[in-house]
Design a protein around this nucleic acid. Sequence first.
DNA 1: CCTTCCCTAACAAGTGTTTGGTAGGTTAAC
DNA 2: GTTAACCTACCAAACACTTGTTAGGGAAGG
Lengths: 236, 236
Amino acid sequence: MPSTNRTTSRSTKKSTDKSPSKPTDKPTSKSTKKQDVSASPARRRELLDTAAEVFAEQGYDATTVRKIADQAGMLAGSLYYHFDSKESMLEEILAAFLDELWAGYDAVLESDLGPRETLAALVTESFREIDRHRAAVAIYQKESKHLAPQPRFAFLADSQQKFEKAWLRTLERGVEAQIFRADLDIRLTYRFVRDTVWVAASWYRPGGHHSPEEIARQYLSMVLDGIAARGGPSAD
Amino acid sequence: MPSTNRTTSRSTKKSTDKSPSKPTDKPTSKSTKKQDVSASPARRRELLDTAAEVFAEQGYDATTVRKIADQAGMLAGSLYYHFDSKESMLEEILAAFLDELWAGYDAVLESDLGPRETLAALVTESFREIDRHRAAVAIYQKESKHLAPQPRFAFLADSQQKFEKAWLRTLERGVEAQIFRADLDIRLTYRFVRDTVWVAASWYRPGGHHSPEEIARQYLSMVLDGIAARGGPSAD
DNA sequence: CCTTCCCTAACAAGTGTTTGGTAGGTTAAC
DNA sequence: GTTAACCTACCAAACACTTGTTAGGGAAGG
């Protein structure tokens, strides 16, 4: 719970401006900058969390720094004590999420599981990540596509490539071992599995009826075995 | 022909008071207004198509009217001869898409098919719609969530509700007839099927390797029967 | 002359960001 | 033990620019 101690600043009616390109972006040295990374990390994370919430709900472009500041109980300019741009907040949110995501993924991929168990573990890990970083995942879903081309967000493209490689390899191994069907287009299958998992972030709400593990279990059951009844009457 | 509950936008009054000089906004008569709907429908559709393209690629908020005009080979102000706001372009794009979508859906739902055939027909119809309105679908995917609450876009919420009802009913019928599995949470299954279909718009490119029908066939195969091999070695 | 379709040029409101200040706490000097 | 210096975390006010939108005008064709 953020301590919104100050007078909950009502929405300012003043003005601002957005300049898309900022040349001053080179930390010439790692010495103590004006603010940047040196300030209290707790408050920093707190502000990033509220920013992520607003980004996820309204979309990045539709979110103004004043809305973020409002939600955090401060004024727009004060955010620039902690961060040096709106974009850097976005970057930090996404980078932190991907870092944690890959920590989990790498652990799975390095543990020499069979294809089916790997798939199950990856899916389960994904739903845990959605549970913990639902806002970041939602932002990632909505914005990564047009962010990835920007040099600043190259790590998004990197992650996507690594992601695709890991999934394709798992699926291929499964097909070779005759654990997964061979008659399906493997890229289509990849996109199918990938999308079915991540779009859940758009409706998932933590604290709902299902735990991440329960959702993962049911998703896996559908993806692996389908929704058609097995012994039932054959239609068509 | 589209006899669906057509909530085609009646231009509601501007709830967002931003422009001071807009006294009357009620097209009570369908007579030739200043611009609105009367102008050449061909050029109109042309402009809407390019607008949809830009919206889909950059996101609605990130898209400026100048970018749209640029892409259309004209200046920003000139767009306002054809449309009376950026938002009305968005509205028209989405409304036109949903009208056509529901024309197809209603035809399926009214033809008394069994649950499995209904599901197959709905999925196939959806992929055809993605093929024809890929930009509109992408916009719908990204923006509908935060647009639906606005009164102007109430038709989005209506459509979503109708959509959910149709799908849930189809799934329930299938479970009763023992065509679909009974051990799955039906709402989860609904979201699963819904999402797996529509997110395809984010990567689908017309003229690719697969026709909409082919993609629909493979998706249906995965959704119905799963990606696990049937006779193969059983893992777990 | 009228209509269609577009351009030029501007408007006000809103945008991200910067600069300078300052309340309040902690530290150090006297 | 007062005082001075310092630091953190914020506010207040502005800045330069972009945004959607409008008003007036003009070229082309009927």
